[in-house]
Design a binder for these strands. Structure first.
Lengths: 225, 225
DNA sequence: TTTAAAATATGATATTTGTCATGCTTTGAT
DNA sequence: ATCAAAGCATGACAAATATCATATTTTAAA
């Protein structure tokens, strides 16, 4: 059983605000999980009752819309805490989480961490700060959705994924998404996403090798209108 | 000088979690302001350094997009706290706030309320809950923006404004927005918003009298595709 | 009250995006 | 290795939305 106190991942999220004693207790009650690519971590409408600390891998947070399509609301990176909102509200979650590659996560039950949330102001403030940041990002997404073209949004998504998740040795984006995923990030039809990616290839902005994508001209993408 | 302890508005936001002593102190340092319709309360990029407790009136939170259009991200009601995020982060605000009708607000300086945020866990938890709720709503807006048609979004906006802000004696929506505001809520061209409102009139879903709008057939609006 | 400016309305047209159809590739299970 | 299923690609067309032009109405200032 690994140990939260020694876990480096902690530094990247609100758990860094916990004291040594709190960490020891959390260490004792957490459960580690391995999640395979494509697996569901939790589903919209479930009661998740805890938070997931993402030690490795990436997952998507999606929400089913009325027309039956999934919208990807956020990509969650290594280091993030998943399900923070479940700590604060007793409602079921409004999002689903699905692994985009193999993941390592620790699950910390709500009732254990709630103690800390109530007693350690540093921890609470950190959670609050994280949520404020999420909210600000959500505002940006709203504005982009409302005011930018599909092509611009897709270009930005590629840049975002490049800067956030980085590249492989061959400069390929290290997070591999299906064309449908790209469509669900920018909120368009799958065919439209495919067409625009093809266009980007013709323009020399990207190159592809199977599902892998390499950005060839970052500035080109940033200038898309 | 009015008194926070006796103020009913408090019941509608996180300030309800403050103790009597805390309220007395807040009462002493707050400033009341009257804001006229159309006036700017704060501007994107400003350091607001406090929260506004909205005693009366409605305002819009907007964000300027790259193409020069304002996107309305949220409408703020009587009872809401405005600028909560400034408490948590030291960054300048990412939004502008503009009054949609005459408003009464109290401004509470950040350094005063921060004390409470750090010392009263009930208050902190309440702020946290409010932010979690805002975040959930923001997710819904993202999905709607991405997946629904302009017509659907505009229909929903009308229903939302009806249920949230209510109507006058004559059943007119009590919040009066320009067509441009409607366009900026749903993220479309002003002409498109105007056209769709005209269509809704022809369909008998709404009637208008100047800028005022009356919903004539709520179910019709809810069934728009 | 008059009058200019702003907001609303609507037509014509261009552009963007979605939908349906069909063929080609890749992937993964047997 | 083979084969079906899933994913990718692209054409043809339809629908939604944006843009530009111009008239009409409303609003607010002098």
């Amino acid at each position: 059983m690994s140990n939260c106190e020694q876990c480096i991942i902690r530094q990247f999220n609100s758990l860094k605000a916990l004291t040594r004693d709190e960490l020891v207790r959390i260490s004792g009650c957490k459960t580690s999980k391995t999640i395979k690519k494509g697996e569901l971590i939790f589903n919209e409408g479930e009661n998740i009752n805890g938070v997931f600390c993402v030690k490795d891998g990436v997952c998507k947070l999606t929400k089913l819309s009325a027309n039956g399509k999934d919208q990807i609301v956020k990509l969650v990176v290594k280091g993030d805490l998943l399900g923070q909102r479940s700590l604060v509200s007793d409602e079921v979650t409004n999002l689903s989480a699905i692994a985009l590659n193999d993941m390592e996560v620790c699950f910390i039950p709500k009732h254990e961490i709630m103690r800390d949330l109530q007693k350690n102001p540093n921890f609470t403030m950190d959670v609050l700060q994280q949520m404020a940041k999420d909210l600000k990002e959500a505002d940006n997404v709203i504005v982009n959705m409302a005011q930018k073209s599909v092509k611009q949004r897709l270009a930005e998504a590629l840049v975002y994924i490049h800067t956030t998740f980085g590249t492989t040795d061959e400069d390929m984006l290290s997070v591999i998404l299906s064309r449908e995923d790209y469509a669900n990030i920018v909120g368009t039809a799958t065919e439209s996403a495919i067409r625009i990616l093809s266009q980007f290839k013709k323009d020399g902005f990207i190159s592809t090798k199977g599902k892998q994508i390499r950005i060839e001209n970052m500035n080109g993408l940033k200038r898309v209108e």
